[in-house]
């Protein structure tokens, strides 16, 4: 890998290779210092337990709302560290080695995997204490997948923005919550359908919207990230 910023030639193979390397680095880093992921898991399970003891018997529509709220807050706290866990000197070193696009993409892919695992664990834990009202498992899983992708793309990009400020955790919440609402609303609708709380004949419409929003935000994120990283 050479000094990429000087030649702006777009090389897909090179980028794929870089993404592979960076992804492996992210996972290794996570496993080495597992306090971050275990912290989030602890957060998720204690929230589930608080919710369970507060509600005792949870109706399916309440289940749906609570599930996504738990996922939302867990995702924000999982993604917020994306750009601040390594010191800025080392980040600069990465940027001098790799294309910024592959840095952002590797973080997004890593966060998709992380959030998907996180939401599956939440589903498992929540079902364990409160029962699972999910009727259409395939559709619910699709909602989780699309949700992880949407959350990951939006939150990773906003984490990149807010990492430029000192008080980044607060800024992250302020910037990302309004932006995530369209995705979250569509997700809640989709999963309400999987819980058979409503019969939506045009489910593929919602899936299509989610995919379109995800792809659009990904495209803009990739186009804008090269302006963001340098300091």
């Amino acid at each position: 890998m050479g000094f990429k910023q000087e030649n702006p030639i777009f090389a897909p193979m090179e980028i794929l290779k870089e993404i592979g390397f960076l992804l492996r680095k992210e996972i290794r880093l996570e496993l080495r210092t597992s306090y971050a992921i275990s912290g989030i898991l602890l957060y998720v399970f204690s929230t589930i337990f608080i919710v369970y003891t507060a509600f005792q018997k949870i109706q399916p529509n309440v289940w749906n709302a609570l599930f996504w709220i738990i996922i939302l807050f867990a995702s924000v706290s999982a993604v917020v560290k994306s750009f601040v866990q390594e010191n800025s000197a080392r980040q600069l070193y990465y940027y001098s080695l790799a294309n910024p696009i592959s840095i952002l993409l590797s973080k997004i892919i890593y966060n998709i995997i992380l959030l998907l695992a996180l939401s599956l664990l939440t589903w498992l834990g929540f079902s364990f204490v409160a029962g699972s009202p999910v009727r259409d498992t395939g559709q619910f899983f699709l909602a989780l997948l699309l949700g992880s992708a949407g959350f990951s793309i939006t939150f990773t990009f906003i984490a990149a923005i807010s990492s430029k400020a000192d008080n980044n955790a607060t800024l992250m919440a302020i910037l990302s919550f309004p932006l995530i609402i369209p995705i979250l609303l569509t997700l809640i609708k989709l999963s309400a359908n999987a819980l058979r709380l409503m019969q939506d004949t045009a489910v593929q419409n919602d899936i299509f919207i989610l995919l379109a929003i995800d792809l659009m935000l990904l495209g803009v994120g990739l186009a804008l990230f090269p302006f963001l990283w340098r300091d």
Partner: peptide, 28 residues
């Protein structure tokens, strides 16, 4: 300079996130 650069990036990102909000979701 930093304020201008980062807020410009956010402004463009927010505008794109705004399109489904105003034009797509209300129609469906």
């Amino acid at each position: 300079e930093k304020k201008a650069r980062i807020s410009a990036v956010y402004n463009i990102f927010a505008f794109v996130a705004l399109i489904p909000l105003i034009y797509v979701i209300p129609r469906l």
